[in-house]
Every structure is written in structure tokens, then in C-alpha cells.
């Protein structure tokens, strides 16, 4: 539901989305190191494929996003991760639209970066097996909040198309409650597991 299609938004809005996405992409890719590439690729593959897992919620269909998980695991590189996943989803699955890839990346990518900040502020600089419970809790909060933020971004943009903000927000949040819950639990569990077995993955 978070993929906005072509022809829905005002051109000014999706053009602004492309501008923001281009700036963040350039900055993020300039920070990329060779050792980041395998992790970035694996998590991008997960974000790309997970959108196929749909849950029918009343009159609509919702799917997993994993933007919070990508943010926690990749930091700033979550932005190119989500961008590439959205490009592939658009051209291969027909999700969203070509013109709206930029704004869709903003909708899911900015919350991913916020999720990273929440996770880092919750765990502190040192993540190890001793602090795995704290890491797991911070990961779960970050994973859930990232989805909620993505939905708020979507609702705010749909406001410009004439949708009623409160109604749209309530509708998208209610239909995504299972997604928010599952992504929070998933991120918490995976982060806890990685903090136990390979905490060096969080030292970026």
C-alpha cells in the first residue's frame, strides 16, 4: 500500500521526491565502503522480495516493508538499499510508478534513517552479547516506528490529492497494524540474534 503509483501526485511533489532522493543517494554512496557491499546486497534482496508477502486486511491488501530493519542494519546505506529495491519492484512487479520512485524512496527511506537514529540512541555505541536485550528492544521500537512514519508520510502526500488526512491516516495505520507488529518483532529478534553472534556487524 505504500507504493504510490504514477499520475496520483502533483508533479511538483514527485519531482521534489526525486531531488531529495538524489541528494541522499549521492551522500550515502560516497560513504559506502567495499566491506559494506555484501551486507547491503543481502538486505536489499530481503527488502525487494518481502514486498511479495501480502496480507489481506479488510478491503485492501498490505505487504511487508522492512525499512526499519534496513535502517538498523545499514544506517545511511538503507537509503540506496530501499531505492534499488523499489526500482526492481517497480519494473519487475509493477509496484508503484516510475515517476514516483523518488517520493516512494523518501517515504520509506527517511523513516529507515530515523529508525537507525532511534536504534543508535537506544543502544549506545557498544553493542555486544551483554547488551543484546537492550539492542533487541531498541531494534523492535525502531522497526515499528519506521513503518508508522512511512504511513504518515504516505497519508500526508495523499492529502494533496484531496484525500482526508485523518481518515486516510487512520485507515492506513489500522490496516498496517499486523505489519507494524510483525516488523517490530522481526527486527527485535534479528537484532538480538546478531548482537549475540556477530556484534561487529553493528560497528559501522
Amino acid at each position: 500500500m505504500v507504493h504510490i503509483s504514477d499520475g496520483v501526485l502533483d508533479p511538483l511533489l514527485w519531482e521534489a521526491g526525486w531531488a531529495v532522493t538524489a541528494i541522499i543517494l549521492v551522500y550515502a554512496l560516497s560513504k559506502m565502503k567495499i566491506e559494506d557491499v555484501p551486507r547491503l546486497s543481502v538486505i536489499t534482496a530481503a527488502v525487494f522480495v518481502v514486498s511479495l508477502v501480502h496480507i489481506q486486511m479488510g478491503p485492501t491488501s498490505v505487504h511487508f516493508i522492512l525499512n526499519g530493519f534496513a535502517g538498523v542494519m545499514l544506517g545511511i546505506l538503507a537509503y540506496p538499499c530501499i531505492f534499488v529495491a523499489l526500482v526492481l519492484q517497480c519494473f519487475l512487479f509493477g509496484f508503484g510508478g516510475v515517476t514516483t520512485i523518488g517520493i516512494n524512496t523518501v517515504n520509506m527511506g527517511i523513516p529507515a534513517l530515523v529508525a537507525y537514529l532511534i536504534f543508535k540512541s537506544g543502544t549506545g555505541p557498544d553493542i555486544s552479547s551483554e547488551t543484546r536485550k537492550k539492542a533487541s528492544l531498541s531494534g523492535a521500537i525502531a522497526g515499528g516506528i519506521a513503518v508508522v512514519l512511512a504511513l504518515l508520510f504516505l497519508a500526508a502526500e495523499l492529502l494533496t490529492t484531496g484525500e482526508v488526512f485523518l481518515e486516510t491516516t487512520v485507515l492506513v495505520v489500522i490496516t498496517h497494524i499486523p505489519i507494524i507488529a510483525v516488523e517490530a518483532i522481526f527486527t527485535g529478534v534479528i537484532v538480538g540474534f546478531i548482537a549475540t553472534v556477530a556484534p561487529e556487524m553493528f560497528r559501522q
Partner: peptide, 17 residues
């Protein structure tokens, strides 16, 4: 399409590396 997407990702990872 899913397999094709994973193939593209592998290619992109190679280029990035």
C-alpha cells in the same frame, strides 16, 4: 521476476564492489 530481481542485485553488487 523475483529470480530476475535477485540476479540484477547480484550484478549491482558486483559493480558496486
Amino acid at each position: 521476476e523475483t529470480i530476475a530481481g535477485l540476479g540484477y542485485l547480484a550484478g549491482l553488487a558486483g559493480i558496486a564492489m
